[in-house]
Design a protein around this nucleic acid. Structure first.
Length: 791
DNA sequence: CTAGGGTTAG
C-alpha cells in the first residue's frame, strides 16, 4: 500500500466534520509509525483536533496496532489533558499491565472487557500459567464483581477466555456461572476452553437448556471436542444438526467435520467434504493432509501437499507438521529431505516458525544432527524453537544434550516458558540428575512458574524419578490446582519406590476428590500393586478398571497383571488370564512378564511355552535368551541352557554394557564394569576389598568361581569384573560423611549378586542406599531392600 | 465513535 499523501487541514475551509473525517481516514491509512508521527505533528502545528479525544483515540489505536512501544503510547495518552472514556479504553486495550481502577474512577463494561483481552493476549500460549498473569486475572475478576459487571456477557466471555488461557478452568467456569443469561458467544467461550469430553458435556447442557441457538462457532468447537475423544457418533449428530439448521456449509464446520472423520479413519468421507468445498483454505488443506498422514496414506498426503503449494498457499508450520508420516514405517527420511529442499527453495526457512517445524520433523525422525543444524542455522531463535530442540533431545533419550541446551539458554538470558521447563525436567528425571533438577526448581521459583500445573507435575515426576519421593509428595500437597496427570505422577512415583500401600491410599483419595481416573491412573496403581506385592488389591483394581470404568486394558496393564500374579507365584492364574486379555494387548510384554515369573518360581515348562512365543514375536531381544538360559542353569539343565545361549550368539545379540552414575555434590561420576578410568580408582578398589571382607564376615556369599563353572569364558570374564554399581557405591562411601545416604542410578537392572551385596553394604556401613535401576527404585536399609527381593 | 467466541497441527 502506498503511503497516504499528507494533506494539511486548512482551518479556512471546513473546520467541521469533513476535515475531521479526512484526518481520521489518514490515521487509519497510515502503515508505519512514522506516518502517524507526521500526522500528529501536523495536527499539533495547526492546532486543530489536537485536543480532540476522538482523533486521539484513533491515533492511539493505530500506534498500538503498528506495535509502537508501550512507553510511547503512554506518553501520547498523557499529552491529552481531557481524555474521555473512549481514549481511556483505547489505552487500556493497548497496555496489558494497566489496571482499570488505576486508570480512572468509573470504568465501564468496555474497560473490563479490554483489560481482560489485552491481558490474555499478553500471556503467551495456552498453558502458560505464570503467577503474575494469574494474579492480575484474579484482581481484575474481583474488580469486575465489585463494579457490578459480573453479569455482563461481554465482560464474562473476555474473563472466561483469560482464565482458560491461564489453564484455570475452574475459574472460567465460575465466571460463566455468574452470568444469569449466557448468550451463544459466552457458551462458545466456555466450550473452547474445555477439554474434549468436558466440552461435549457442556454442549449437551447448552442444548438441554435450550435458551440460545448454537451457531457455526459452537459446532466447530464441538467437532474439535468430538475429534479429541474420537467420538464419530457425536460427530455424525453434529453433522446432521448442522445440515438441519444450515450451518453445515460453514468453512470451519466443514473443516472440523473433515478432521473428525479423518481421525476416525473415514478418509473417503473427509475427502468428499473437502472436494465439495468451493475454495478450501489453508486450514482445510492442513486438516486433510494430517488425516492422510495419521492414516498412513503418505502418498495422498504428499500429493495434497503439492496441490496446496500449487494453489498458491504458503504452507505454515501446521502444514509441515501435518505432512510428517508418523505412522508409516517407510520413507520418512526421504520425505524429510524433500520437505527440507522445498522449504529452502520457497525461502520459507527464513520463517522461524517453519524452521522450527522442520527441526521438530527431524527430531521426530530421530535425526538429531539434522535437527540441530536446522536449529543452529536459525538467526533468531524463538521460544518454540528452543523448546522443540530441548524436548527433541529429551524425547530421544539424549538427556545430557537437553540439559546442556537448557543451560545454554540460561546463559544467554533467554527466559524459559512452562514447556521449556517441563522438557528439561523430563530430561533430568530420565537422567536421574537430582542436583540438576533442584537447580531447575530454583529457576521455576525465579520465573514465577509455581502456579503452572504442567511445570509442577513435571517437578513431582522429576523428584520421584530422582529418588526424592518425600519432596515429590510435599510439592504435590502444596498444589491447589492438581489435575489427573499430577495425581498419576504421584501415584506412579510411589509405585516406582515400592510403596504400594501409599499408592493405593492416594488412588482412593483421588476418587474421593471426584477426579476421573484415566487409563494411566490404573496403570500406575497396578504397577504399584505389582511392585508392592498387593495381589488382591491389584486384581480388584483391574476389575474396576475394565468393568466400572469400561477402559480396555492395554499392553502395559496386562503386563502388570501378569507380573503381579507371577510375583505371587500364581503362574497358572496368570497364564489363564492371558487368554482373557484383548488380542491387541498380548505381545512380547505379556509373555516376557510370564517368563520372568517362571524364572523366579522355577517353572521350566511354562517358561518354555512363554519363550517360544517370545522368540516368534521379538527375535531381536537378547534379554529373553538370557532369562531362559539362566533358568535352565538354575535347574542344572546345562545342555539346554547352552543351546539357548548358542542361539542368542548366532543371532549376534549383544547386551548393553552396564554403567552407573553417582552424584557427589553437583558433580556426576560414571562407572563402567571393571573400569579403572576414575582418578581415584586405586583407592576405590582397595576400599572395596576391605568392605567385601567385612561383608563376608556378616554372612555375604560372593559369586565364586564355583558358581561360574557352567558359564562360557567370555561371559565369565564379564561376571568376574566388578559391576559398575559396586564401584559407584564404594566411591560414594569414600567421598561422603558417615550416615549420608548414597544415591546411584544404573542403566540396566541390578543383578542378583549386586543386589545381595548392596543389602550387606547397607548393613555393615549403616547407610541408606537408594538404587534406581532400569525399572524401579531399591531402598536398601540395614540389610533389607524395599523391593522385597523381587524385581 | 469502542467489545466477547471458532476450524488444522504440536
Amino acid at each position: 500500500m502506498p503511503p497516504p499523501r499528507l494533506v494539511l487541514p486548512t482551518p479556512a475551509g471546513d473546520p467541521g466534520s469533513a476535515l475531521r473525517r479526512s484526518y481520521l481516514r489518514l490515521i487509519s491509512l497510515s502503515s508505519t509509525p512514522r506516518h502517524l508521527d507526521e500526522l500528529l505533528a501536523v495536527s499539533l502545528a495547526s492546532g486543530h483536533y489536537a485536543l480532540d479525544p476522538a482523533p486521539a483515540t484513533a491515533l492511539l489505536l493505530r500506534y498500538a496496532s503498528l506495535r509502537a512501544p508501550h512507553a510511547h503510547l503512554l506518553l501520547l495518552f498523557r499529552a491529552f489533558p481531557r481524555p474521555d472514556r473512549f481514549l481511556r479504553n483505547a489505552l487500556l486495550r493497548s497496555l496489558p499491565s494497566l489496571r482499570p481502577h488505576l486508570l480512572f474512577p468509573c470504568p465501564d463494561s468496555f474497560s473490563f472487557a479490554f483489560a481482560a483481552t489485552s491481558l490474555s493476549s499478553s500471556c503467551s500460549s495456552r498453558g502458560s500459567g505464570d503467577a503474575g498473569a494469574a494474579t492480575a486475572a484474579r484482581a481484575l475478576h474481583a474488580l469486575v464483581v465489585a463494579a457490578g459487571f459480573a453479569e455482563d456477557t461481554f465482560v464474562a466471555s473476555a474473563l472466561a477466555k483469560l482464565y482458560s488461557k491461564l489453564s484455570r478452568g475452574d475459574d472460567a467456569r465460575r465466571v460463566f456461572d455468574e452470568v444469569p443469561a449466557p448468550d451463544t458467544i459466552l457458551w462458545n467461550t466456555l466450550l473452547a476452553g474445555l477439554s474434549g469430553s468436558e466440552a461435549l458435556e457442556a454442549f449437551a447442557r447448552m442444548v438441554e437448556a435450550g435458551r440460545v441457538q448454537p451457531d457455526s462457532t459452537t459446532l466447530a468447537s464441538v467437532l474439535r471436542a468430538a475429534a479429541e475423544v474420537a467420538n464419530v457418533a457425536m460427530g455424525r449428530c453434529v453433522h446432521g444438526y448442522g445440515v438441519k439448521c444450515g450451518l453445515a456449509e460453514h468453512e470451519h464446520v466443514v473443516t472440523g467435520l473433515m478432521s473428525l472423520y479423518a481421525k476416525c479413519g473415514d478418509m473417503v468421507c473427509a475427502r468428499c467434504l473437502f472436494d465439495r468445498m468451493e475454495d478450501p483454505d489453508l486450514v482445510a488443506y492442513n486438516a486433510l493432509i494430517a488425516g492422510y498422514s495419521v492414516n498412513g496414506m503418505v502418498e495422498s498426503s504428499t500429493e495434497l501437499f503439492k496441490k496446496l503449494a500449487a494453489s498458491g498457499w504458503r504452507p505454515n508450520p501446521s502444514t509441515l507438521v501435518a505432512v510428517i508420516p508418523v505412522y508409516s514405517p517407510f520413507g520418512h527420511e526421504l520425505l524429510a529431505r524433500c520437505l527440507h529442499g522445498f522449504v529452502v527453495k520457497a525461502r520459507l526457512d527464513a520463517d522461524a516458525l517453519v524452521s522450527t517445524a522442520l527441526t521438530t520433523l527431524y527430531c521426530r525422525l530421530n535425526d538429531m544432527e539434522s535437527a540441530r543444524s536446522m536449529f543452529d542455522a536459525m538467526p533468531e531463535k524463538t521460544m518454540e524453537s528452543w523448546n522443540a530442540m530441548i524436548s527433541g533431545y529429551a524425547q530421544n533419550g539424549l538427556t545430557e544434550m537437553a540439559v546442556a541446551l537448557f543451560q545454554q539458554m540460561q546463559a544467554l538470558n533467554v527466559q524459559p516458558n512452562p514447556i521449556t521447563i517441563s522438557s528439561t525436567l523430563s530430561a533430568c528425571a530420565q537422567l536421574g540428575a537430582l542436583s540438576m533438577g533442584k537447580w531447575v526448581h530454583k529457576i521455576i521459583a525465579k520465573e514465577n512458574l509455581e502456579l503452572n500445573v504442567y511445570v509442577m507435575t513435571a517437578l513431582i515426576d522429576m523428584y520421584a524419578k530422582c529418588g526424592s519421593i518425600a519432596e515429590a509428595r510435599s510439592i504435590f500437597d502444596r498444589m491447589d490446582n492438581k489435575n489427573v496427570v499430577s495425581w498419576n505422577a504421584m501415584i506412579s512415583g510411589y509405585g516406582l519406590h515400592g510403596q504400594g500401600a501409599e499408592a493405593l491410599k492416594l488412588y482412593k483419595a483421588m476418587l474421593d476428590a471426584h477426579i476421573l481416573p484415566t487409563s494411566s491412573t490404573f496403570l500406575s496403581v497396578l504397577y504399584a500393586c505389582s511392585h508392592g506385592g498387593l495381589v488382591d488389591e491389584g486384581r480388584t483394581v483391574f476389575h474396576v478398571m475394565t468393568n466400572e470404568y469400561k477402559i480396555t486394558p492395554g499392553v502395559e496393564h496386562c503386563t502388570c497383571m501378569v507380573d503381579l500374579l507371577g510375583r505371587a507365584g500364581k503362574l497358572k492364574e496368570a497364564f489363564e488370564l492371558i487368554s482373557e486379555f484383548p488380542k491387541s494387548a498380548v505381545g512380547p510384554g505379556v509373555w516376557g512378564a510370564l517368563l520372568g515369573a517362571c524364572m523366579v518360581h522355577k517353572d521350566s515348562d511354562l517358561a518354555k511355552l512363554a519363550s517360544q512365543k517370545l522368540f516368534e514375536l521379538d527375535p531381536e531381544n537378547a534379554g529373553y535368551y538370557v532369562l531362559l538360559s539362566n533358568l535352565y542353569t538354575s535347574k542344572k539343565r546345562y545342555s539346554e541352557a547352552a543351546v539357548v545361549r548358542q542361539e542368542a550368539k548366532s543371532r549376534k545379540l549383544v547386551k548393553t554394557p552396564g554403567c552407573t552414575l553417582i552424584e557427589i555434590g553437583d558433580k556426576p561420576h560414571v562407572f563402567m564394569a571393571g573400569d579403572h578410568v576414575h582418578p581415584q580408582a586405586e583407592a576405590i578398589y582397595s576400599y572395596l576389598e576391605k568392605l567385601t571382607a567385612k561383608m563376608i564376615e556378616a554372612g555375604y556369599q560372593p559369586v565364586t568361581e564355583a558358581a561360574l563353572y557352567d558359564v562360557e569364558e567370555e561371559e565369565k570374564e564379564h561376571m568376574v569384573k566388578v559391576h559398575s554399581e559396586k564401584l559407584a557405591i564404594a566411591f560414594g562411601l569414600l567421598s561422603t560423611e558417615p550416615g549420608t545416604e548414597i544415591r546411584i542410578i544404573k542403566n540396566l537392572r541390578v543383578c542378583l549378586d549386586c543386589h545381595n551385596a548392596t543389602k550387606f553394604i547397607s548393613k555393615v556401613t549403616q547407610r541408606l542406599i537408594v538404587v534406581r535401576d532400569a525399572s524401579r527404585f531399591h531402598h536398601f536399609r540395614d540389610g533389607v531392600c524395599s523391593c522385597g527381593d523381587y524385581w
